[in-house]
Amino acid sequence: MRFGVVIFPGSNCDHDCFYVLGEVLNQDVKYVWHQSTDLSGFDCILLPGGFSYGDYLRTGAVAHFSPVMKSVERFAADGGMVIGICNGFQILLEAGLLPGAMMRNTGLKFICRFVDIRVETTSTPWTCGAYEHQVLRIPIAHNEGNYQVPYQTLEEMKLRGQVVFRYCSPASSVSGEFNPNGATENIAGVCNREGNVLGLMPHPERASEAELGSTDGLVIWRSLLDHCGVEVPTIL
């Protein structure tokens, strides 16, 4: 499977993602500079975390107008797989590829720690290898993860199974106590209607090797490879 990791000025998780996709998952992976518009040959485009354009104006607001994003929109419309992690998620929101918007964490602090997230649906390409309500331990690192979405839109999203991950307790209970940033209904990740575009605040690429404290991120990568009919490396 061929992955493209987009680099915006200020991306800083691009190398981590490149390493996990290439070295841990043994897949074909290339960097895509944000001014490139050619995404031909890729099966999945990854928008990594970081601080694209210094988070000026709003997180992801300026990156949304990078030349590559027009191509990412077309790529997604044609059914290509797109995943945005952290700042990548924020960019997908600003681009309108996913519903909602991101605000400052309610505690006004940058939060960098492991959290537990619950898989809310196993009907997406990104979670088809998880079991129902599986809890994944994956780190977050953000200042703007307070996900907001108009009530009516959220109700429609829930009906369509677009809420993919929620912050929860280690025992999978979802409540305000386990909401790190104030996100509406503890939402940590959502997908589009078709399911081929995923955005999430936690960093699965930082939880893909036992040495880093968790391999739960592999559940997402493995689901994606399975969905795309790729033989999953035996190490996983």
């Binding site: 104006l57 709003r58 607001a61 300026v62 107008f65 600003e94 909602g100 918007a101 605000m103 907001q148 979405v149 108009p150």
Partner: peptide, 8 residues
């Protein structure tokens, strides 16, 4: 288009 995010 850019200066405000009409959702919020």
């Amino acid at each position: 288009k850019l200066l405000a995010n009409p959702i919020i």
